[in-house]
Simulated assay, not measured.
Amino acid sequence: MTQRVFDGHNDVLCRIWLNSRQGGSPVEDFAGNGRTGHVDAVRSKAGGLVGGICAIYVPSPRLGRPVSDANGYYNTPKAEPLEHGPALAATQEMLDIARDLDEAGVWSICRSTADIKAAAEQGLFAAIVHIEGCEGIGAGLEELDGFYEQGLRSLGPVWSRDNVFAHGVPFAFPMSPDTGEGLTGAGFDLVRRCDELGILVDLAHITEKGFWDVAKTSSRPLVASHSNAHALTPVARNLTDGQLQAIRETSGVVGVNFATSMLRADGQNNSNTPLSDIVRHVDYLVEKTGIDCVGLGSDFDGALIPREIGDAAGLPKLVSALRGAGYDDEELEKLCFGNWMRVLDSVLSN
């Protein structure tokens, strides 16, 4: 029997939105007729992917090129902040696509773990709507409640660029996540309002100072939806042992990212990355946080992933690798599904 998987982070909504701007049909795309990217209904069912946290991410119009040296070390300049108006328009367009997929019956927008389980029983992809980088929300939080009414249940205050809420970490290797300032005054307000509404706050792209700002402000479990161990791969996006300890102490969760640059010891983008590198990070994270605080956060449709996985249909290969590393059925259920359900239930059942 295929192990069911709930994915802590993917960019399928952004991919579908970009394709729609070129004339593609969002419903046909997710239904599996487009065969682009990593995630659609057909490949999800084949791989046991019952659902995931689906990011609304507004791409930067210009991204800097990594500056590297002979050792393979690199630093990528952070993208310029986005203007609020265009970001708001793009965010709403992706929310509309999420609704259209729901109304077409190819996935289900879920607002609770009960919704996730009901969607899975119906054979529908269970989508938790997430905003990755809150440029579409103004500093006064005017749009937040409206997005919540449309199904938003998770957000990351910042992507790897700065905005009115927080500062993001650059894509750099080797580098500490302690790269700058944390939450702004508006950012503290955002975290407090998310706690009130029951919106998960994701720490995946924020600076280390921002991480600790959220930790001292939020009463919710600390969550990094798609991050790995800095001790194994010292990119700025990965988590230090101190951050992992805080996640453990709040009974939070860290989702293991499949991006090869966040898995490999050399920090490089290389699809010939073995599944043993994912297992290595899972092992380390379990050692530091315990078996109850680790999940999967693939970054499907947003990153270069190991060729051996390929796309959502390849998830059983990873499950097999984890089983071969000694994880039993109960532990695999926690890593692949149960730990996300526990944390989501504690946040969304506001």
Rank of each mutant, 00 (worst) to 15 (best):
L82N: 06
A87K: 00
A89G: 06
A89Y: 09
A89H: 08
A90G: 07
Q92M: 14
I97V: 14
A98N: 08
E103L: 14
A104K: 00
A104S: 05
G105K: 12
G105W: 11
R111Q: 14
S112T: 15
A114F: 10
Q122M: 09
Q122R: 14
Q122Y: 02
L124W: 00
F125Y: 06
A126Q: 01
I128Y: 01
V129P: 07
V129I: 15
H130F: 09
I131T: 07
E135L: 04
E135W: 07
E143G: 07
L144F: 05
D145T: 13
D145K: 14
Q150E: 11
G156D: 00
P157K: 07
P157E: 08
V164H: 14
P170D: 12
A172I: 02
F173H: 13
P174V: 07
S176A: 12
D178F: 13
E181V: 09
G182E: 05
G182W: 05
L183F: 02
T184M: 05
A186Y: 10
F188P: 02
D189A: 08
D189N: 12
L190R: 01
R193I: 03
R193N: 06
L197W: 09
G198F: 06
G198C: 06
L200E: 01
V201R: 00
L203D: 04
A204H: 04
I206H: 08
